[in-house]
């Protein structure tokens, strides 16, 4: 069912493009990835729009007030949330649904590329079974021309230079860089960099490029090419919708620390120093500070006992 509906049509489309562009599998992968991403662009746009609305809502004063007011009453909280969503015309699942629809398409694309790169007899037997005879002729297609630039797309890529005894995994490096750029650029700015969600996003920004780089290093370079093109298109799609967060790429300027208690320490050592040197009771914080600097609460110096 999955094969018949997704993988087989994708394989045939990919191979059809391969034939159209003069049997260059690298160009076929690039064009096919662009095509699929163009087709799914409305879903992507809807997803970005939905997540932007949800994010804007998080800093809406009315919403924040409501959250604070009903934090002890789940039922009331849910009802009020729904009311606000309705009032502001926000669809809470608008960002999830397009992702769910896109997912099988992306997986199908990935599987189609793997299947088309058949490099063993069993894989080739399976590939020929996917081909629509009315559309494509096996004898004209097989073997696929898997050479692209310096790469054999069916093998992990290494650039061998005459003066080096080892091959450089150029494509794996490009995958790491583009994945990192994409992760950074599409991560929305967090209202509180210390909250758990922001910390997780920060971790993902590092783990994801390494993970993708490992895959690119070990798997067929045709897949690495797909990763790179997919990352670049992803960045392009966000740029087109004006959702790139360039500030994430700039080095963070250190804020001046007017008062230790207000600008919370970011490192454990800072808090230790602060605790050790603080000799006076901390000045009382303003009410609105507490919402944006929740992380500071835990490192506030202990109140001194009044010994007088």
């Amino acid at each position: 069912m999955w094969d018949a509906l997704i993988v087989t049509p994708f394989i045939n489309a990919l191979l059809f493009i391969y034939n159209l562009v003069g049997q260059n599998f690298g160009i076929a992968i690039i064009l096919f990835t662009i095509l699929i991403r163009l087709i799914t662009h409305p879903l992507m746009a809807s997803q970005i729009k939905g997540s932007k609305s949800m994010q804007a809502l998080q800093s809406d004063p009315e919403y924040k007030e409501m959250m604070e007011k009903y934090k002890g009453d789940r039922e009331k909280l849910a009802a009020e949330q729904m009311r606000i969503y309705k009032e502001k015309n926000i669809k809470p699942f608008a960002s999830c649904l397009p992702t769910l629809i896109q997912l099988p398409i992306i997986i199908g694309l990935y599987q189609a590329i793997i299947a088309a790169l058949a490099s063993t007899p069993v894989e080739l037997i399976n590939l020929t079974r996917h081909i629509y005879p009315a559309l494509l002729k096996v004898e004209a297609l097989i073997p696929l021309n898997a050479r692209f630039l310096w790469m054999d797309l069916g093998q992990p890529e290494r650039l061998n230079l005459p003066f080096l005894s080892f091959g450089i995994p150029v494509l794996a490096i490009v995958v790491v860089v583009t994945t990192f750029l994409q992760s950074k650029l599409i991560t929305p700015p967090s209202s509180n960099p210390n909250d758990q969600g922001a910390q997780m996003a920060k971790m993902m920004n590092w783990y994801m490029p390494i993970f993708m780089g490992y895959l690119a290093f070990t798997l067929a370079s045709g897949l690495s090419l797909y990763f790179v093109i997919s990352n670049l298109i992803g960045i392009g799609q966000y740029a087109l919708l004006g959702s790139l967060n360039w500030s994430n790429l700039l080095p963070k300027s250190k804020r001046p620390a007017p008062a230790a208690a207000v600008a919370g320490p970011t490192k454990k050592s800072d808090s230790v120093v602060q605790l050790a040197t603080s000799s006076r009771p901390e000045p009382q914080k303003k009410a609105d500070d507490s919402s944006t600097n929740r992380g500071n609460k835990q490192i506030r110096p202990p109140r001194k006992k009044n010994r007088s």
Binding site: P121, Q155, L219
Partner: peptide, 21 residues
């Protein structure tokens, strides 16, 4: 989870799973 996913994907695709008779 990332390490597991990497192992799984590597094992399911590309060069590592080359198979024949």
């Amino acid at each position: 989870l990332f390490v597991l996913a990497a192992a799984l994907l590597s094992a399911c695709t590309g060069a590592m799973t080359a198979s024949s008779w």
